[in-house]
Every structure is written in structure tokens, then in C-alpha cells.
């Protein structure tokens, strides 16, 4: 009797654990069903490399948005990654315990601030600053990159911090015992040893940047054109969906789901790369 009950409970937990699998399958299937017909009609090549997005004329080319997404993400990484790595070195090596006890939750608080608030702050502070000091409309790739760089900090900091902390003590002690300075130890022993964790964190951070919608929707200007400089406005894959989903219908709406497919594929590739690095680091 007791045995049966235990078995039933065990099976119950197994079914619950399958929820992640089934939800992921549902998401993939429903977005594919909605989006694939448009891609099939336009042709995958024309959809991805098409320069013209004019839903009313049935023209669905998302290349400018892919370029937009990639440029804000790369911009965010250029600004955010060095900053984040400095912060994780600070937390693990330089900060006195009392200081890191305050700084760590403060950096994590950055992850809690709603993305619309970042967008609004960017719109009312960063955008005018860029317009006044650097010229252009202000609504730009640069503004988006700055906002995203701040938003991806917590992701990169927390994962790289964990990977630095996970290193065996002997690495650091050995290096210091050989007469290396603290900074030499960090640069030539700790950072290289934690490389796989840091790379994972950077990839996951870039995934967050490419998937962010509400923060960039307010600061990018959203023009469907190839940005020629970092001071030009741009539109990303996510903002394309966010802006037009409100009124799109029929084929136009399906094209937005197709945009979602491309986004999903990029995220899955990044995520698999991150998991691969983690696994390799473990072996």
C-alpha cells in the first residue's frame, strides 16, 4: 500500500517535471505554425535578406532588423562586457566583504528594474544627451546599446562571479606563492581558468540583449532602414514585433510570428553554444 503510494507520487513528480518540455514544445509548435506559411510564401532567402518591409504591399524583408538587432547587441557587449568583468573581479577579489555585501545585491537590483523604466530613462536622459553632444536624432543604435549594456550587467556579473569563485584556492595561492602580484594572478591565472564560465555569461548576456524589447523600443527610433552609423535610428527584430503586433492582422501578423521564429532560432543557437561551453568546461 505504502509502496504503491510512493510510486504514484514519484510518477506525479515526473509528470510535473515534463511541464518544461511540453511548454517548450507548445511554444515552438505554435509559433512555427503561425510563422512558417509567410516564410514559405516569400521564400526563406528573401525573408531574411530582403531589404524592404512594407506589410501593406506584401513585402516582408527583415534584413534591416537583423542588422539592427546585431548592431545594438554588439554595441551592448562592447560596453557591457568589460564593465561586467571588472565588476565580477571587484566582487571576488578586491571588495572588502562588507562592501561586496552591498554591491552584489545592488547589481542584481539592476536586473529587477522594469525594462520599460530603462527605456523611459533612456528616452528622457540618454537620447537628449546624445542629440546635444554627438548630434543626430538622438534616437539611435548608440542609445540602445548603452541601455542594453546596463541591462545585461547583472547576468554577466553573476555568472562570471560564480565561475571565478568556483576555482580551486590552490590556483590563486600557487600564483601568489610564486611571487606574482594580485593583479598578475587575476590576469594570468584566475581569468584564463574561469574562461569558460565568463564566455557563457557573455553569450547569455548577448541573448538577453537581442531579446529585449521594451527598453529599446523607446530609444531606437524604430526606422526600418539600415543604420549607417551608431548615431542612426534602427529597428530590431523584437521592436518590429512590439510595435506592429498591436494592429497587425492576417498575413502581416503571420509575418511578425515569422520574425519571432528568426529571433527564437538566434536565441536557441546562443543558448546551445552557452550550454556546450558549460559542458566542455565540466569535462
Amino acid at each position: 500500500m505504502n509502496n504503491l503510494k510512493e510510486k504514484l507520487i514519484g510518477n506525479g513528480f515526473f509528470l510535473i517535471a515534463l511541464s518544461t518540455l511540453s511548454v517548450l514544445a507548445l511554444i515552438t509548435v505554435f509559433i512555427l505554425i503561425e510563422g512558417v506559411p509567410v516564410i514559405a510564401k516569400v521564400g526563406l532567402f528573401n525573408f531574411i535578406f530582403g531589404m524592404k518591409w512594407a506589410p501593406s504591399q506584401g513585402a516582408f524583408g527583415i534584413f534591416p532588423m537583423i542588422v539592427g538587432s546585431v548592431s545594438v547587441t554588439v554595441g551592448a557587449a562592447l560596453l557591457g562586457v568589460p564593465t561586467a568583468i571588472c565588476c565580477s573581479i571587484f566582487l571576488t577579489e578586491f571588495a572588502p566583504p562588507a562592501v561586496s555585501k552591498i554591491v552584489r545585491p545592488a547589481i542584481q537590483l539592476l536586473a529587477g528594474i522594469p525594462s520599460v523604466v530603462y527605456g523611459f530613462w533612456g528616452l528622457t536622459f540618454i537620447v537628449p544627451a546624445i542629440r546635444n553632444f554627438l548630434g543626430g536624432p538622438g534616437l539611435s543604435v548608440l542609445a540602445g546599446s548603452i541601455i542594453l549594456a546596463i541591462m545585461i550587467l547583472p547576468t554577466i556579473v553573476s555568472i562570471s562571479e560564480v565561475s571565478i569563485l568556483a576555482l580551486p584556492r590552490q590556483y590563486k595561492e600557487g600564483s601568489l606563492a610564486l611571487g606574482a602580484t594580485h593583479w598578475q594572478t587575476i590576469r594570468s591565472v584566475l581569468l584564463p581558468a574561469a574562461k569558460s564560465g565568463i564566455m557563457t555569461s557573455v553569450i547569455l548576456g548577448m541573448g538577453r540583449a537581442i531579446g529585449e524589447t521594451m527598453a529599446v523600443i523607446m530609444v531606437l527610433g524604430n526606422a526600418v532602414a539600415l543604420p549607417k552609423s551608431i548615431l542612426d535610428p534602427a529597428r530590431t527584430l523584437t521592436t518590429n514585433i512590439g510595435i506592429e503586433m498591436g494592429y497587425a492582422s492576417g498575413e502581416h501578423q503571420q509575418a511578425l510570428f515569422a520574425t519571432g521564429i528568426v529571433l527564437l532560432v538566434i536565441i536557441m543557437l546562443l543558448n546551445s553554444a552557452a550550454q556546450l561551453i558549460v559542458q566542455r568546461g565540466r569535462d
Binding site: 518540455l21 517548450l24 541573448g207 524589447t213 514585433i241 536565441i267 536557441m268 550550454q275
Partner: peptide, 15 residues
């Protein structure tokens, strides 16, 4: 699957 769900952008959840 849990990792993939964590990585999916919120706008895709919206879709």
C-alpha cells in the same frame, strides 16, 4: 528545456 525557457525573450512569450 528549463534553460531554453529562461532564454526565450519576453516578446516571444507574448506571441
Amino acid at each position: 528545456c528549463a534553460g531554453a525557457l529562461a532564454a526565450i525573450p519576453s516578446i516571444v512569450y507574448g506571441l
